[in-house]
Design a protein around this nucleic acid. Structure first.
Length: 406
DNA sequence: TCTGGGGTCCTAGGACCC
DNA sequence: TCTGGGGTCCTAGGACCC
């Protein structure tokens, strides 16, 4: 069955939230980024008024100041943006439970079964946009298509405060005249390479033999690019996902040569990672130290733990193995970071799952017994469809996502 | 003006095993 | 005395995304 996927994206999210908090900022060139005392920070979000001056995300704040001297510069308040994001998610949930938050400011919804509640999908989209504007005073852009990728591209090309719907079956025709840069995975580097081959438009990707593309980006990359150009993408909404890695990193305000000063910072980052890890009920099997030196060269050093752990002590032991490797290059350090990967659910968490499973079974059996009391024992059978495998019972948390009854 | 922080996914080379 | 392939795991690096 063909589905309808709605992609919703908040316009200039951080800047919009700041404006909602302080309406005096409305209509002004607003630039959100870094922290108050940080000379090395970059732009996280710029209002559309600031963008007119050429200010863009990821641009150094200092450059933004030169481009837009009359701009209003505000440091990031990530906690606030997270709260607004959760409230927006709650608004989206009034339309369908089948939601995948793709990031703090965008989401995919499977609206296939919800459209009839609003007569048509345009009315559904208008309802969400209106609700968000009323409650949070920020505008959003909506794209609707047969899959997540096309819906997102549709939203991207009609920002801000836009709405664009692509009928099922029209994906290819919609994408053909667009720039290759709209396709996922085509960033500045790949785009330059493609343009070097004369491939400017999505249509030209379709006309180029796959082996030629493979020379540029590998066979897998070429296959993905072809599929994307044809408008093929996933329509599966993954409602809950286990993180693949947890990391913390920081850039020094001035490059640091003294590891006696670097190490305590590193230990604090490690403790922050470990705290996040445990709050997710996870353990890590791999600890990676990241060091960026003053020449911007970045090195990573990895240590695999003998067994998964979520304890600060085990992580710090791993770090002590790695630090000498980072120190080996006698250069000033610009950035340090810690990354935890090879994540798995902790034993404690597994016990919680087991308890949840037991309780689920108890509830199920109470209902089954109640039916049997009324209609006789033979009225309800427990077939193999009822899961007996512990892993499957936990799948709501363990597997990548839920496909919402597809 | 030098270039953040949080992620995901892919590649490639070497080790190791059969 | 020379030396096959295939598979998998580990590590490091890089492109890309928000």
């Amino acid at each position: 069955m063909s589905r309808r996927i709605l992609h919703i994206d908040m316009d200039a999210f951080f800047a919009s939230v700041e404006t909602a908090l302080n309406p005096v900022l409305r209509g002004k060139p607003l630039i959100v980024g870094g922290s108050a005392d940080d000379a090395r920070s970059v732009v996280s979000s710029a209002s559309y008024e600031a963008r007119r001056y050429g200010v863009r995300s990821a641009m150094p704040i200092a450059q933004a100041r030169r481009l837009c001297p009359e701009g209003i510069f505000i440091p990031c308040s990530h906690g606030v943006y997270g709260e607004v994001s959760r409230r927006i998610e709650a608004i989206l949930e009034t339309v369908t439970p089948c939601i995948q938050m793709a990031s703090i400011d965008e989401a995919n919804l499977d609206i296939t079964g919800s459209i009839h509640l609003f007569n048509n999908e345009a009315a559904l989209a208008a309802h969400l946009k209106k609700r968000i504007e009323e409650r949070e005073h920020i505008t959003a852009t909506v794209g609707i298509a047969a899959n997540k990728m096309v819906a997102k591209i549709a939203a991207n090309i009609c920002k801000p405060d836009g709405y664009l719907s692509i009928d099922n079956g029209m994906e290819r025709a919609f994408l053909a005249p667009l720039s290759v840069g709209v396709l996922p995975g085509v960033g500045p580097n790949t785009r330059e390479s493609l343009e070097g081959m004369g491939i400017m438009m999505v249509r030209q990707v379709l006309e180029t033999p796959e082996p030629m593309l493979a020379n540029l980006m590998g066979s897998h990359g070429a296959r993905c690019l072809k599929d994307a150009a044809m408008g093929m993408g996933s329509d599966i909404i993954e409602t809950r996902q286990k993180p693949k890695s947890i990391s913390r990193e920081t850039t020094f305000s001035t490059d640091e040569l003294d590891w006696a000063k670097i190490e305590p910072v590193l230990f604090r980052l490690t403790e922050q990672c470990a705290y996040s890890l445990r709050s997710e009920g996870l353990e890590t099997g791999r600890v990676t130290l990241k060091v960026r030196y003053s020449d911007f060269q970045t090195k990573t050093f990895t240590f695999s733990l003998p067994e998964p752990s979520g304890l600060d002590s085990a992580l710090l032991r791993a770090l002590r193995e790695l630090i000498p490797k980072g120190k080996a290059r006698r250069a000033r350090v610009r950035l340090i970071g810690v990354n935890l990967s090879a994540l798995s659910y902790s034993q404690h968490q597994m016990e919680l799952f087991d308890r949840e499973r037991e309780e689920k079974w108890e509830r199920t059996m109470r209902s089954v017994d109640a039916v049997r009391d009324k209609l006789g024992f033979g009225s309800v059978g427990l077939g193999s469809a009822l899961c007996t495998n512990g892993n499957d019972m936990r799948s709501g948390r363990r597997k990548k996502g839920t496909d919402c009854g597809k």
